[in-house]
Structure formats: C-alpha cells, structure tokens
C-alpha cells in the first residue's frame, strides 16, 4: 500500500502510523475518518471557554502584555468579525482564538514553526456580544489576552 507524504503528516497525532495503516488496510478507517483524527474534536465541541481551555491543556492562562488581540469594538455583522492576534512573547508556538458566548467557544487553533511569526489574522463568527480571547502557548506556559466585541446581528444561527 502506498502512503503519500501529506497523508503521513496528517496522520501524526492519530497514534502510530503503522497501526493506523493496518486499520486502513483492514478497511476499518476511511480516509475522512483519519483526517478527522487530527482535528481536536473534544476541544471544538467544548461549550464554554473554561472547558475548551482544559481540553487544550491550557488550564487558567495568565495575562501577558506582549500578547495582543485586536477585534472591532462593535461588529455590525456577527457573521464576519475580523480578529488579529500578535504574540511577542518569546518562543510562542501556538495561538488559539475563543469566543466566550458562542455555542462552542473555540474558533480555531494555529501552530507555528520554521520561522513563522506568532501572528494570525482571521475572520470569525460571533453569535452575540462576547469577550474574544487569544490564548498563546510559549514554552510550556499559556497566556491570554481578551477584548469585548459588541455584536448587533448574530452570525451563528442565520
């Protein structure tokens, strides 16, 4: 069975590559299921910020002046809210963006390597006015920055 390199990378985190390949050969796992295994379902299913942070292993992060989050004060359309996060904390390896009052708090999670700066800009959906939090991992510590964004029209239910 041929294993293509991208799939190999995606499989990381799903346990031993050998074991997974064996399962795939046995037809027990479809490729889609394997991809999903690399997606932190527990964290994305968590209803509130505390539970999502716990699943990410972040516990109760401390605030840090070198972690910045930028969201608009007022978002007229909750379906498209621009968020910018910049971490100047040395050795930041990942950033997560969470919205406290969304049905599921975690919006997305990014890991950086090979020269990538610990910065991300994205557009998120917000169901209602809420705190938006950025959680950065630097070394083995977690830090948080937060800002409130008022939403006049929600973007989750449609």
């Amino acid at each position: 069975m041929e294993i293509n390199p991208t799939r190999r990378i995606v499989l990381r985190g799903a346990g031993s590559i050998g074991a997974v390949s064996a399962l795939m050969m046995a037809g027990l796992l479809k490729p889609t299921a394997v991809y999903a295994a690399d997606w932190n379902k527990a964290a994305f299913d968590a209803k509130d910020t505390a539970a999502a942070l716990k699943t990410l292993g972040a516990g109760t992060p401390a605030e840090h002046k070198d972690l910045m989050i930028k969201v608009p004060d007022i978002a007229e359309n909750g379906a498209v809210v621009p968020v910018d996060v910049v971490s100047n904390i040395p050795n930041t390896t990942s950033i997560a963006i969470l919205v406290d009052k969304n049905p599921t708090a975690l919006t997305s999670h990014y890991s950086f390597s090979n020269g990538a700066l610990a910065e991300v800009s994205a557009r998120i959906k917000m169901g209602q006015t809420s705190l938006v939090r950025a959680v950065a991992k630097a070394g083995d510590k977690y830090y948080v920055a937060q800002k409130e964004c008022k939403v006049t029209v929600g973007g989750c239910g449609g």
């Binding site: 994305f44 975690l106 919006t107 997305s108 990014y110 998120i124």
Partner: peptide, 11 residues
C-alpha cells in the same frame, strides 16, 4: 510553517 485547526466559527 503553519498548521491550523478550524471549527464552525470561522466566517
């Protein structure tokens, strides 16, 4: 350089 995981709350 970047690996991201995204949920339904991305626009």
């Amino acid at each position: 350089i970047v690996e991201g995981q995204t949920g339904t709350a991305i626009a």
